[in-house]
Write a protein that binds this DNA or RNA. Structure first.
Length: 289
DNA sequence: AAAGCTATCAACCGCTCTATA
DNA sequence: ATATAGAGCGGTTGATAGCTT
């Protein structure tokens, strides 16, 4: 079901993702968001291409994804939407919360194949006469439901997960009303692993997506002054807005850790000049990281 | 029990779209 | 208006679990 790991010509890993890689990617995105897929793996300490990271996140790691088989309602919805808009998998996925375009595409392709075997005539008319397809699928559905009933399995509830993410999520993340956050230990590991695993990555880019706005990672700064001067020196072209975004976006994830940092700072209001942040005592801020 | 076949789905590939300089 | 880079999308591939012979 998964590809065997391999390495491409520039040393980037391919194939199945390990749990460690998943954890790194999940932790990084939870902390900083996916501000730049191409650069993200470097900063997250992953030997993967950005595209691979993006796909892994969107199709597997992103919180809120449903795992397990599609429900009958979801299948009907897919058939109906496919009838209306065709192979617009992402558009169909948008109408099915928790489902990915890849999942829907896979479902469609495997079921189309199944239906073609059953009734090749129906498939020739799929687009203009999808009802035929629907009928065939209904028949298939009935059979599978019958099989399930014979085996004593509930036919309708297919939403329960057996995938690694749902098994591990409670251990890896604290789920609260405020969202999902790393517990303290994971957070500490995150600080040490993804960033330090690539010692050449002395800087990280603000999630405000400005490609030239780089701010020194406080943990990597040789001094507090390095960190704060990196926010202000003319060689770094962060605008007030960038700095505002840097300060707010990574910490707007409502993690308990970040919340505790915020709780210890005077409130910073939106639109407030960022320089007011720099009025905070540098040592205090540095220690908070 | 073993070999062959099929279905599933994670992952990759390459093209298109969009934003930015 | 054009070039370029990054993101997104749909098509395809390939490993493997499970089923059939």
């Amino acid at each position: 079901m998964v590809r065997s790991p391999s390495v491409d010509k520039i040393g980037l890993k391919r194939g199945a993702w390990s749990e460690e890689e998943d954890n790194k990617l999940r932790a990084y995105i939870k902390r900083y968001g996916h501000w730049n897929w191409r650069l993200l793996p470097k900063f997250a300490g992953l030997a993967r291409c950005g595209k691979s990271c993006r796909l892994r996140w969107l199709n597997y790691l992103k919180p809120g994804l449903k795992k397990g088989s599609l429900s009958k309602e979801e299948e009907e919805m897919i058939i109906k939407l496919h009838e209306e808009i065709g192979n617009k998998w992402s558009s169909i996925a948008a109408k099915l919360p928790g489902r990915t375009d890849n999942e829907i595409k896979n479902f469609w392709n495997s079921h189309v194949r199944k239906c073609m075997k059953k009734d090749p005539k129906a498939m020739g008319k799929t687009n203009e006469k999808s009802q035929n397809m629907h009928d065939v699928m209904d028949e298939n559905e009935k059979e599978s439901t019958d099989e399930q009933m014979e085996n004593g399995i509930a036919a309708t509830d297919n939403t329960s997960s057996t995938e690694p993410f749902s098994q591990n999520i409670e251990e890896d993340w604290i789920i609260s009303e405020n969202g999902i956050s790393l517990d303290d230990e994971s957070f500490e590991n995150f600080w040490m692993e993804p960033i330090l695993s690539n010692t050449s990555s002395k800087n990280f880019i603000s999630p405000s997506q400005s490609s030239n706005s780089s701010i020194t990672n406080p943990k990597e700064s040789s001094s507090n002054d390095d960190f704060f001067s990196s926010c202000t020196t003319s060689s770094v072209t962060n605008s007030d807005e960038d700095l505002w975004s840097f300060w707010n976006e990574p910490f707007s994830l409502d993690t308990s850790y970040n919340q505790s940092i915020h709780d210890q700072l005077p409130p910073v209001e939106e639109g407030h000049p960022f320089t007011s942040f720099l009025d905070y005592d540098a040592d205090d801020l540095f220690n908070l990281f």
